[in-house]
């Protein structure tokens, strides 16, 4: 994974909609990440952060500027860029094991081998024994674990996550955050994680980028050097609480504009 998964985004603008309804969702955004870095992008709802992520995944075209991953221009989606949505996007007609093995199937790997790898991956995310279930038979937290397993099996260079825990209850969300960190500390793939939850962003990230109201621009960058592995005790430390207050102030200043 070393020296892989580096985005280079320069002066990127994204316009959405047609004709009179067209608007600028993201304006003049530049940033890059280190290999294996965990970046959280924090922003108010509707600020264009999801659009930015879709463009990085190759699903939405940019109108200005360029996105490169490891020097390659991104023009269409590919398996090197893993994507995790807020609501799970598992295929309802496939059993859990086939959902997880989907990426391997697309690479032409035979069934017994891809099922073997999928079982390993399900063990990693703590879902052994659920291979034959359908997604609808799982709880929300389990569905997101399967979704993450399905992306990880492709060994992507970077994982883009669009508020992946936003639809979960508070208790499950916290355990999923810890789960994600434990998995990530094992593989150290670059992660770009979008959220509007300040605490979540501070708890997870190496570096925090705060976005403005639409059209989205980065208005603040905060490096976070809390020791890893991180535990929930971090949430009560004075430094954490102080940063949380700071982020809140920055976001609130946006509301007055």
């Amino acid at each position: 994974m070393v020296d892989q998964g580096c985005f280079e985004i320069s002066r990127l603008s994204i316009r959405l909609g047609l004709g009179k309804q067209a608007f600028t969702a993201v304006e003049n955004v530049s940033f890059s990440n280190q290999p294996g870095e965990f970046i959280c992008i924090l922003g108010p709802s509707g600020c264009g952060k999801s659009t930015l992520l879709s463009t990085m995944a190759g699903h939405v075209a940019s109108s200005q500027g360029a996105i490169k991953l490891d020097g390659q221009l991104i023009t269409k989606p590919n398996a090197d860029i893993g994507l995790v949505f807020q609501q799970h996007s598992l295929f309802p007609w496939q059993r859990v094991i086939d959902n997880v093995a989907f990426g391997l199937k697309m690479r032409g790997i035979n069934k017994s081998e891809r099922h073997r790898q999928a079982r390993e991956m399900l063990e990693l995310v703590g879902l052994s024994g659920f291979e034959q279930h359908y997604p609808a038979q799982l709880s929300g937290g389990m569905q997101q674990r399967v979704e993450i397993a399905r992306v990880l099996i492709n060994t992507p260079k970077v994982i883009l996550m669009d508020e992946p825990f936003g639809a979960l209850d508070a208790q499950t969300r916290l355990s999923m955050q810890q789960f994600l960190l434990s998995v990530w500390e094992g593989i150290k793939t670059s992660v770009i994680f979008i959220t509007h939850d300040i605490e979540e962003a501070l708890f997870l990230a190496d570096r925090l980028l705060i976005m403005s109201q639409r059209p989205g621009r980065f208005i603040e960058e905060i490096p976070l050097d809390f020791a890893r592995p991180r535990t929930t005790e971090l949430l009560a430390t004075p430094r954490f609480v102080q940063l949380k207050q700071h982020c809140l102030t920055v976001l609130q200043s946006q509301n007055h504009l």
Binding site: A57, P77, L83, F85, Q87, S89, M106
Partner: peptide, 26 residues
């Protein structure tokens, strides 16, 4: 659900296979 198509594409599904793998079962 367009997200299913987006997810499949991001998992390496080519446009041609999309019909058989996603569109028809969905």
């Amino acid at each position: 659900d367009q997200r299913l198509i987006a997810a499949a594409r991001s998992l390496g599904c080519k446009r041609g296979t999309l019909f058989y793998e996603i569109i028809i079962p969905a």
